[in-house]
Design a protein around this nucleic acid. Structure first.
Lengths: 192, 192
DNA sequence: CCTACCGATCGGTAGG
DNA sequence: CCTACCGATCGGTAGG
């Protein structure tokens, strides 16, 4: 027995699959409709337009990231634990929402100016979270004092964001295990 | 005096700018033509079609990566030097070909099956290069023996590939400096 | 949710 | 390289 799900959510779901696989502009409303077993024009009984789908998918992903990552600011953890936990949650959001996360990272440039601005603001917030986390570690004497905070944040964000390009469910490691491995390598280094 | 450049190269150049900024499907042949001061149909006196532009840009980028990275296999360097050198060259290709590199990473899924296959083969080659480099470092006792080679390669590739999303010319660090910082952090770790 | 349709725009071609 | 055009397809709407 599948959960009763309204048509609107089904549309978002299929849109996520198609946008993430083919891209926003390469997916037509008729492609979308046919996968839902309806005619192109019928979609507009449920949604206002194509852009709404993109906005919704991007917002979905952004909210997942926010809900998972932002509470970390107040968490009572050592800098190392906090770094590992941020990477865990970050990769878990990507892995658990692979389609909307892919749309988020890949298609956000096609948003209208308003929604586009919200995404850049989101990115700044997450950047700041990672930078603060690094700064805190330096201040507490746990991380190296000579780290370039901006570059260190880019390095961490590279690792967690890039996962959307290669992570696939069913692989040997789950999201938390991937994050833990990355965190160990980043904290301890590759050198023997 | 600008270099005499044939029209074909000019078209590729403008296509790189537009495809990297707006995306392949969101760029029309008329957009492209108007930026070159010509009519849409006139493009076809120089090129065979839109797909040719994408293929050419992607191949351009792939060849730059190959020419720069593949010779490293035979280089007589310590594992640490080789890792740093690979990251340097990798990021230098991205930074020095930002538009075609962006098209390469972002639009390759829209290639026809044949060109698509070549890109996945390329990716496997570069994956193998990084994995061999890591394996060599482990075998020589320079890198930690318990590294997960696949995950380590993903981590390195994340760092160098993700640069296309944030690197912009004129920033405080050039490509080699970015690579050096990344290499130091990755080799030594963030921990004090 | 369907049928039937709208104007706009797409990639590409013919003929010059 | 232009003018003029092709068929196809696009996102979206009207009326039921």
């Amino acid at each position: 027995m599948t959960q009763p799900k309204n048509r609107r959510e089904q549309i978002y779901e299929v849109a996520g699959a198609l946008f993430s696989e083919r891209g926003y502009h390469a997916t037509s409303m008729r492609d979308l409709a046919s996968q839902l077993g309806m005619q192109g024009g019928s979609l507009y009984a449920h949604i206002s337009g194509k852009e709404e789908l993109l906005v919704e998918l991007v917002n979905q992903a952004a909210q997942q990231f926010d809900a998972s990552l932002l509470p970390l600011r107040a968490a009572d953890l050592t800098p190392e634990e906090k770094l590992r936990e941020a990477m865990r949650r970050h990769i878990e959001v990507v892995a658990g929402n692979l389609e909307s996360a892919t749309v988020f990272f890949h298609e956000w440039k096609h948003l209208s100016p308003e929604a586009y601005g919200k995404v850049t603001a989101w990115r700044d917030t997450i950047d700041a979270l990672y930078r603060d986390l690094i700064r805190e570690g330096i201040d507490k004497g746990v991380f190296k004092a000579d780290l370039d905070i901006k570059m260190t944040a880019y390095l961490l964000l590279s690792a967690v964001n890039w996962t959307y390009t290669w992570y696939r469910p069913g692989g040997p490691l789950n999201a938390a295990q991937i994050a833990d491995q990355f965190a160990v390598m980043l904290l301890e280094g590759l050198r023997r």
